[in-house]
Design a protein around this nucleic acid. Sequence first.
DNA 1: CGAGGGTTTGAAGTGCATCAAATAGTGTGG
DNA 2: CCACACTATTTGATGCACTTCAAACCCTCG
Lengths: 243, 243
Amino acid sequence: MDQPVQRKKFDVAQLRQAPLFAQCDAQTASHLTQLAMVERHPRDRILFISGDEATSFFMVQSGWVKLFRETLDGTQAIIDIVPPGSLFGETAIFEDDTYTCSAEIIEDAELVRLPLATLKQEIERDGTLALDMLKSMTRHRRQQDKELEHRNLQNAPQRIGCFLLRLLPTGAEKNIVLSLPYDKALLAARLGMQPETFSRALQRLKAETGIRIKGAQIEIDDVAQLAGYTCAACTSQFPCSDR
Amino acid sequence: MDQPVQRKKFDVAQLRQAPLFAQCDAQTASHLTQLAMVERHPRDRILFISGDEATSFFMVQSGWVKLFRETLDGTQAIIDIVPPGSLFGETAIFEDDTYTCSAEIIEDAELVRLPLATLKQEIERDGTLALDMLKSMTRHRRQQDKELEHRNLQNAPQRIGCFLLRLLPTGAEKNIVLSLPYDKALLAARLGMQPETFSRALQRLKAETGIRIKGAQIEIDDVAQLAGYTCAACTSQFPCSDR
DNA sequence: CGAGGGTTTGAAGTGCATCAAATAGTGTGG
DNA sequence: CCACACTATTTGATGCACTTCAAACCCTCG
């Protein structure tokens, strides 16, 4: 085992960038920050596997992390692909201190490792933190609901379009250029389809909405046109990222 | 508008049957109970619709409630079918006091209406309640994760089999007779398939696992055989209801 | 230049959806 | 208790979307 751990600065201001810790009291913030460790991990590293005893949760500074579970025959079910700025592993506090999924680095990542025990203590003590945790879980729940709904109501091109829309900065309307955050095969899995289907569905989306595709770069002239096609089969209309 | 409301007794003991309130302090329990109202609602009644201002949450005493959202063209996405003993609508506290889905009675129901404002206050005051709420949301989250996974990995007969298994009392092994909790068309929607597909998939399940079907009655001679077929494509093995 | 992974394309195959119609089941009034 | 109406469920035929298997292509990097 090589040692990925590197001590680096991590301060309260950075901690507070996570919505979960934006409002917690000073004690919570300082306790957590003092015990934080910044770690670098290369692509493909397995951070933990489902069933492992959980002592830490993580904040992604950069890179991407895949959360997944595996069936007996090795098929993977993608639980989530965690973007920079987000937390993961924190729900283990309520799961007998056990991770319920596995985590793999899919893009060289800088993570902040934080102690679950401290989080647990502070939640019990700091009511604001408890409420913020509830809020964050509610947000996640709503997200999950929508994910399931999409699986039922949207076809493959629409699911891709929806993903692209959620990638946009809020308020974007015309002449956007964006690049896919990770490779297409993984994106396909994330959206519940095969790589081949993804490739073909992206072509169909292009034909339907006038987007242009240059490798991992996507150019969108008219966001409204994309939303019109994509969001037709959804219970919420376009600027749906929030709410 | 006819008046469905009937005042009936609802006591602390009944409140505490919900896992969420099993451990909360006496003040929380009595505050909530004092303001509780028992209501009877007939099948097909719409209790609230998505976007409504939310002032109450509910506990199901008997009957079943469907939570859903609708697309512009009227297609429904089933969020959940709430069984007796469960709560619903409580997450509106963290959603700007707005219901994020609609609720319809699908089986004549007796509901306890409880005030969200009180719940909110008590969560802020009673740390135990806050933690229990977090636990209950975690449980739900895990459930949702699995639901999504099933949609990807299981075929129609397996999804039905999995549903049947979750209907069993824990420890059941041989010669079970159980009846479907609500009609097959709704069950189909709940499992993300068409009624026709449900009907055919149930036949296939019968052929694969030796169960017998008499209308809404299902007879299972050998639970292990059913689990063997059903759970082959899942990341968790059979007695999976918990954990 | 050549190797290897990521991506696309092609050609079947499968499972579920859809449309249509038959059948079973349930409740009603005579 | 029966006949009728109406709904729930099943069955049949067909179509479509996605999957699967296979091969080509493309791009990056040594």
